[in-house]
């Protein structure tokens, strides 16, 4: 499958950035190969999934306000079918990490992510969630949400304007649309090794909570 076959309404795929990464992702998925019938079913399922991404706003700071602005009248997240903001992680498909993640919040971010049902996606919105942003040198800030959970799309900005957020969500839709429900699963990227290895002892930190016992 070619990346140009992934259609998004009103935005031709040539105008999208970062087509190479998506193409590499498709190739990786295609490595196992599937037959045509399943492919069609996959397309239908992906169409459903991509257009019904119910977000969970993990909003910690400024970016959360821009997320709210995006959901309000001027920008209207509802046009993408995404206005059904679920506050319960169990019912959400997409976690929008909007804001700084600090040491104290880290375990909770991970826990909320673990509570979500598959298929689940994560969008890192804003500089803080991508890399720690303005607070990258601070003692209490985790430099990027991807140290704790896998991130599918990075939306830069501080905070990104709602159009930027929409562009990021469209990118995510493209990613959802190339995945396979039958045959092989979506590729879950490994967690950043920093978090899973205790820097003191060199051992892997075992996450213990009531959800994975």
């Amino acid at each position: 499958m070619d990346v140009n076959k992934v259609k998004i309404k009103a935005l031709p795929s040539d105008d999208f950035k970062d087509n190479e990464t998506l193409q590499a992702y498709i190739d990786e998925l295609n490595a196992t190969g599937t037959n045509v019938v399943v492919g069609k079913l996959d397309q239908m399922i992906n169409w459903g999934r991509a257009n019904s991404l119910w977000p969970l706003a993990f909003a910690t700071s400024c970016c959360g306000i821009e997320f709210m602005a995006a959901a309000a009248a001027h920008y209207d997240l509802a046009r993408f079918g995404m206005e059904v903001v679920r506050n319960s992680p169990r019912q959400a498909d997409l976690m929008v990490v909007a804001g700084t993640i600090v040491h104290k919040m880290g375990p909770l971010l991970r826990r909320v992510y673990d509570q979500m049902a598959e298929p689940k996606y994560v969008v890192a919105m804003g500089a803080c969630a991508i890399s720690g942003g303005p607070f990258v040198n601070s003692y209490h800030v985790i430099n990027g949400a991807d140290k704790i959970i896998p991130v599918d799309v990075y939306i830069p900005g501080c905070p990104p304007r709602p159009e930027s957020l929409f562009y990021g969500l469209l990118q995510l839709q493209r990613k959802v649309k190339v995945e396979k429900f039958f045959g092989n699963k979506r590729i879950v990227r490994p967690y950043n090794p920093d978090t899973l290895i205790n820097p003191k002892t060199g051992e892997t930190v075992k996450v213990e909570n009531e959800f994975n016992k």
């Binding site: 040491h103 880290g106 375990p107 003692y139 209490h140 704790i148 930190v205 996450v207």
Partner: peptide, 21 residues
């Protein structure tokens, strides 16, 4: 104590953890 002038900001002292507290 972070605001002390002699605070040791070594990240290994306070590692990132995902274990519940």
């Amino acid at each position: 104590y972070p605001l002390c002038k002699d605070y040791d900001a070594d990240p290994t002292l306070n590692p990132i953890t995902i274990a519940n507290k």
